[in-house]
Simulated scan of single mutants.
Amino acid sequence: MSQNRSSNNLVVPQATAALDQLKYEVAQELGIAIPQDGYYGNMVTRDTGSIGGNITRRLVTIAEQQLAGRY
């Protein structure tokens, strides 16, 4: 696994594996190869931003669906 140097802390630490899986799924859909060594320094900023933006979009959609199901 890659080293996480982010200052962001997950509310549910067990979600790390699910978020990593989502990252790889989104990258594959966009046709972007994620480095296996975990070093993103050689990736284009536009690619990493696209991955992050699509992850956020998907997470918001999931949250909206869950909220709609509760009410």
Rank of each mutant, 00 (worst) to 15 (best):
N54R: 15
G31E: 06
T56S: 11
G69R: 14
G69S: 14
I62E: 10
L19K: 02
R5K: 13
T61G: 02
L67H: 10
T16I: 06
G49D: 08
D37R: 04
N9Y: 04
L19D: 01
Y71H: 13
Q3N: 12
M1A: 03
I55W: 03
E29W: 05
G31Q: 07
E25I: 09
G38C: 08
A33D: 15
Y39D: 15
L59E: 05
Q65L: 14
A17Y: 00
V26F: 08
V26G: 03
S7C: 03
S7W: 07
M43H: 07
N54K: 14
N8K: 05
L10M: 13
A33L: 10
D20C: 02
N8I: 12
D20P: 00
N42F: 13
L19H: 05
E29F: 06
K23D: 01
K23L: 10
I51E: 02
I51K: 02
Q21Y: 07
N4T: 08
V60R: 11
G53Q: 03
G52F: 11
M43K: 05
A63D: 09
A27G: 06
Q3E: 11
Q14F: 00
N9K: 15
V44W: 07
G52M: 07
V60P: 00
Q3I: 13
E25L: 10
N8G: 00
V12T: 10
G38D: 05
Q65T: 09
I51S: 02
Y71T: 10
P35Q: 02
Q21I: 01
S6H: 05
K23W: 02
Y71I: 08
L59T: 07
R57E: 05
Y40V: 05
S2A: 13
S2N: 05
A68F: 03
A15T: 05
Q21L: 11
T16Y: 00
A17V: 09
A63H: 05
A17T: 12
L30Y: 11
D37A: 05
N4E: 10
R46Y: 11
I55Q: 09
Y71L: 13
G41S: 13
V12H: 05
I62F: 14
L59A: 04
T56W: 04
M43N: 04
S7T: 11
Q21A: 15
I32S: 06
T48A: 04
G31A: 10
A63I: 08
D20A: 09
G53W: 08
Y39P: 00
G69W: 01
V26A: 03
Q36M: 06
S2H: 06
A17S: 06
G52P: 00
L59G: 00
Y71K: 14
N8H: 12
I62K: 15
L10P: 12
